[in-house]
Design a binder for these strands. Structure first.
Lengths: 139, 139
DNA sequence: TTTTTAAATAAGAATAATTCTCTTTTAAGA
DNA sequence: TCTTAAAAGAGAATTATTCTTATTTAAAAA
């Protein structure tokens, strides 16, 4: 992956560019499987064997705060992170921890229209994520 | 809440009826706010001051396994539990930890029809939950 | 009703993910 | 090149949750 692309992402948000931040953001893009902090640490240690665990957590927090990545909701006790920012939904495997992205502009439009017509009293909608739970044939 | 109602829920699943299990299940129904284990412990200690924390976690696990409650997905690092089992969606507050239920049969029907027509290759759908993120006027 | 026993609970130690503290290092503007 | 605020490293601390073991109990059997 282009180093410049990663640098630009950080620069756009006015973040200081460090090798650790670049490696972590790149890991999330490369892994592209809603990795945990542990997955990310394992990945970047191939290149940066000495990166501190605390640093990874701190960088992840900073990336979330700056809107470069998002936390993924799960019913497990470890956090997962998503580098895909455009509107999309998630397929959750019932038999393993796999979470895949599901992009569907038609569905987005359907939901948007539905909630334009039907508003929820006392609540202002910011975004939808449809969690689709089931099983992958491959699992 | 009716003691008999709670007892019946446990009995239906062939679970041994104990005061702790009854108190915990009742707490989830009474609180009705997707409580954490800590919320539940606080609630039941009014009645059972000596209930062990480990017991609460064990009972919650057993209730989930037996399908009497569900885990609620969040992007926080503590688990929340839901005693409402029929199909519904969740309103997540962006500014606090409030999660409210959103029941909408019309939406359920819309989604069901949509995914009957459009199947997802390699994936067998079991259920949908729409996460609606935004802000409550009251928050 | 009493006995029996597998299952459940209490208590607290152990674990694992995450956060914090403090010292050293470094990115980037002056 | 110098300066300095911010970031990283190291490892201790914290917190939610799980595990272990002895004790108690629900509920089936006698």
């Amino acid at each position: 992956m282009e180093t410049e692309f990663i640098k630009q992402k950080l620069a756009e948000k006015g973040m200081k560019i460090t090798p650790q931040r670049m490696a972590i953001l790149e890991a999330i893009y490369e892994l592209n499987n809603h990795p945990t902090a542990e997955n990310i640490i394992e990945f970047i240690r191939k290149t940066y064997p000495n990166v501190a665990i605390g640093t990874v957590y701190k960088v992840l927090e900073t990336l979330v705060e700056n809107g470069l990545i998002k936390k993924v909701t799960t019913d497990r006790d470890f956090m997962r992170y998503d580098g895909v920012l455009d509107n999309h939904h998630h397929l959750y495997c019932s038999t393993c921890d796999l979470i895949e992205d599901y992009h569907d502009a038609e569905l987005d439009e359907l939901l948007k229209k539905y909630f334009e017509a039907k508003n929820i009293p006392g609540f202002k909608i910011e975004e939808f994520v449809l969690q689709i739970k089931g099983t992958f044939n491959k699992c």
